[in-house]
Design a protein around this nucleic acid. Sequence first.
DNA 1: TATGAATGAGATTTCATTCAT
DNA 2: AATGAATGAAATCTCATTCAT
Lengths: 192, 192, 192, 192
Amino acid sequence: MFTRRQQEIVEAAIDLIAEDGIQNLTIKNLSRRIGVTEAAIYRHFESKLDILLAILTFFREQQTALFQSIQQQHHRALDRLKTFFIERFRQFTRKPALAAVIFSEEIFQNDPRLVKMINEIMDMTLKYVRGVILEGQSAAEIRTDISDEQLSLMALGGMRLLVARWHLSDHPFDLLQEGERLWEAIQQILEV
Amino acid sequence: MFTRRQQEIVEAAIDLIAEDGIQNLTIKNLSRRIGVTEAAIYRHFESKLDILLAILTFFREQQTALFQSIQQQHHRALDRLKTFFIERFRQFTRKPALAAVIFSEEIFQNDPRLVKMINEIMDMTLKYVRGVILEGQSAAEIRTDISDEQLSLMALGGMRLLVARWHLSDHPFDLLQEGERLWEAIQQILEV
Amino acid sequence: MFTRRQQEIVEAAIDLIAEDGIQNLTIKNLSRRIGVTEAAIYRHFESKLDILLAILTFFREQQTALFQSIQQQHHRALDRLKTFFIERFRQFTRKPALAAVIFSEEIFQNDPRLVKMINEIMDMTLKYVRGVILEGQSAAEIRTDISDEQLSLMALGGMRLLVARWHLSDHPFDLLQEGERLWEAIQQILEV
Amino acid sequence: MFTRRQQEIVEAAIDLIAEDGIQNLTIKNLSRRIGVTEAAIYRHFESKLDILLAILTFFREQQTALFQSIQQQHHRALDRLKTFFIERFRQFTRKPALAAVIFSEEIFQNDPRLVKMINEIMDMTLKYVRGVILEGQSAAEIRTDISDEQLSLMALGGMRLLVARWHLSDHPFDLLQEGERLWEAIQQILEV
DNA sequence: TATGAATGAGATTTCATTCAT
DNA sequence: AATGAATGAAATCTCATTCAT
C-alpha cells in the first residue's frame, strides 16, 4: 500500500508532531529530517494533507490488525480486553510519538477529510470495546448493572488519560507498568 | 486582572480554536472577529503566546473558583465529585468552545511556557479529584479495594472521552444529559 | 529654544542611538525611557524627524559656543587647536553617547534635511580647524610646507578615528588621556 | 564560498545602503532590485543578518588579499603604505557604495555578531598600518620621534575623513586625485 | 500636558507548492 | 527519483502617527 519512502515520511511526520506539536510538521522540517529536498516529498505525496491522512490510515490499519489478532487468539471477553489494553500500552511505549498524535484529535480539525477519518477511528475503537463488553455481559463474565456504554467510556477514557499524562510530562513513569495497574482496576470493576 | 478588551480577545481566541483548530487562531482572524486592526491586538497583548497563556489562565481561575465553591457548599465526597462533574458538563454545554481547547493539550505543545501551564492545570484537576476520593475512602463513602489513583483516572478519563466525542462529532447529543448518565455509572462504581 | 521636556527627549534619543544604533531609536523606546506615552512625545515634537534635527541642532550650538569661547580665550593658533581637541575629548568622555551619534553621519542619510545639516556641521568644523591652521601658518606658528587642507584632514581624522575605536569597543581605554597623547603628536607635526 | 546569487545579493545590499542608508536595506527593496520575490532571498541567506555579515566578510577578504599582495610586491615600508592608501582610494572610486558602508561602523551596531566583525576589521586594518610603520621605523625610513600608534591614527584617520566627506556630499571631487594629495602629505610627515 | 485606543503601512520570515532539469 | 530555484500567500510583529478625552 505505502512504498518504503512513504512509510519513512509518515514516520518522520509522526515524530515531528510528537516532538513539538502539529506546528512543527512542515514540509521543510520533514524533508530535512529525511535528508531530501522539499520538492522530493512531493514525489511521494501529493500534498501535506495526504501525509496526515496517511498517518491516520497507518494507525487504523494497525488497530484493525490488532482487533483481528485478538479475536483469533482469545475467546473470553476479559482476555480480549486485557490484550487490547496491554497491547496498546506496549505500542505507545515502543513508539511514544504515536501517543502524541493519535489521542490529539484536535490536531486534525482543519480539514473535513481529516475530521471524518479521526471520527471513524474513534468510533471503531469505542465500538470494538463496547462489543467485547456486551459479549462479556451476555456470557455473564461482566457485570450488567452498568451499561456497556458507560463501562467502555470509563475504561477507554482511563487509558487515554493515563497516556496523555505520560506524554505531556515527558514520560516520567513506566507506561506499561502503570498501564497494567490500571488494567487491574478496570478488570476489578468490570467483573461480575 | 484582564481588561475588558483582553477578555474579549481571549473569548474570541477560544472560539476561533474551537471552530477550526489552532491553525485558525491567527492575529488576522482574531482582529477581524473583534473588529479592529491586527496592530490593535498588540495594544492588549504583547504576543500571540500571551493570548494563549491568557486562555489557560482564564480556565485555571474558573476551575479554582469551582473547587472552592464546591468545598464550601458540599461536605460528602460523593456530593463534591458529583457537583464537580455535573458543573463541568454544564460549563461545556454553555461554552462548547472551551471543551475544544481545554482538553486538547497537544495544541499548546510548541512553547515550554504553555506546556508548563497545561501540566499544572491537568495536575491540579487530577489532584483535586484524587483528594476528594481519598476523603471519601477515609469516610467509608468510597470503596477502598481500588486505589484513589486508578479511580480518579477512570472517572476523569471517562468524562474527558465523553466530551471529546461530543465535540469531535459536532455535538450530536445532549452533553449534560449524557454526562449525568455517566456520573450515575461513576457513582455506582465508587460507592462502597 | 528647547523646552525642558524637549531637551529630555533629545538626550534620551541620543542615548538610545548610542546604545544600539539608530534602529533602536523608536518612539516607543523613547517614550518608555522617559516614562510617558508614545502620544506624549508628539506634544513636544511634530515628528521623529524633528527629534533627529534637534539632536544635530543641539550639537551644532554646543560647537558654535565652543568655537566662540576658544576665540575669546586664546590667541595663539596652537592653543586654540589644543583647546578645541582636548575640549572635544572631554565632552565625549562626559557624554559618550554623543560620540556614537555625531561621528556616524551615515545614520542620518535617510532624509535630505538631515543630510544637509550633517554636511553643514562637518563643513563648519573642518573650516574652523582649517581657519585656525591658516592663521597659525601666517603667524609662522605652523609649518607651511603642507597645506592647511591636508593638515586639518589628518588632525581631525585622527581624532575621529580615536573616538570611533573607543566607542566601538566599548570604552576600553581612557579617552581623555589617549586624546592628550594624540594631541601631543598632532602638535609636534604642526609646529614649524 | 559565496554562490553567484549570493554575491549578487551582497552587491545589491551594498548599493542600497549606499544610496539611502541602512533603513533602505529591506528584503523587499533587495528582492525588487534583483528581480525576484522576497521569499527567493531566503533561499540564499537564512536571514537579513546573514546578508550584513556577508558584506563584512566580503570586505574583509578583499582587504586580506590586498595586504598579502602588498607584502609580496613591495618591500620598503613607505611603498607599502602608499600602495595601501592609493589602492583603497581606487577601490572606493570604482565602487563608491563600499565607502558608504564600510566606514559607517555605527550602522551595524544592533547585533553583537556584527559589532564583533566590525571590530575585527578595524583592528586588522590598524594593526596592519601600525606594523608597517614600525618596520619603517626600524629601517630608519620613518621618523621615530612620534609613536607608530599616533602616526597610524593620523594617517588612517585622514583617509577615513576624506572618504567620508566625499561620500556625504555626493562625490563632489575626484577622490583618487585628492587621495594622492593626502598621501603626499602623509608621506612628508612620516619620512625621517 | 498627557493618556488610551487605534490605525495603515510595512518589516521579516515561513509556508505549501511548482517546475525545469 | 531527486534537486535547485523560485513563488504567492500569509504569518507575526513593529513603526510612526492620530485623535478623542
